[in-house]
Amino acid sequence: MDAILEARGLTKRFHGLVAVNGVSFQLRRGEILGLIGPNGAGKTTLVNMVSGTLAPTAGDLLFEGRSVRGVPAYRRAHLGIGRTFQVMKPFPGMSVLENVAVGALFGANGGERNLERARAWARACLESVGLGKRIAQRADALGGPDRKRLELARALAMKPRLLLLDEVMAGLNHVEIEEVIEDIRRVRAQGISILVIEHVMKAIKSLSDRVFVLHHGEKIVEGGTAEVLSDPRVVEAYLGRQRR
């Protein structure tokens, strides 16, 4: 099987708290894998270990068949791992265009060295997420939904081969969610593999090929989207056990 990303027993302990406990999964090339779980299940911690901003306590992580343990975050970006942040991290004092240009200048394979070409590519990425008219604004002048689009454009500008989307739809309304779902479909059509973390079940249902569920830092279920979402253990994790 051709896995672009493989986790083997990834574990993260913060002193006494085990945030992620022995999680293994595979993300196939060209696939959209959904990751769901209640708040505090360890989803963002897992993404942080994949993007390299957190070092795992134990376990191994393979990207395109090679271990990336100990590889710093910027090197993983060069290898082709792009991500968005749940708590968005734009560069507030820069223009929208410059925000995205950073991704173009430093992304996969070290990025584009030519400033003009990087700007042109950044503009194309902004247009693809519907921010084409806002390029001259400062990033901190954008409203919530546009900030989410900016996060997506910044990650796309890096020309990633694997994209980690950490709750890009939180706080969006129905129309905006439909738009972002379309954006993500177009990204996948370019051959980019995607890990989607999402609380918006409509998005998970319409996007993911497969889903796995984290609960208290452990993987409890994995499989096809429909069967996982109707699995009693998943319902219990989200809603609690039914009293008899």
Binding site: T53, P72, F106
Partner: peptide
Amino acid sequence: ARSRFGLGLIAIRENEEGAAVMGVNT
């Protein structure tokens, strides 16, 4: 102010973690 290097520095100033995951060798 007009170079790739300078833009990387500004990115570090504005958000260092964001700069690192976007590929800046901070």
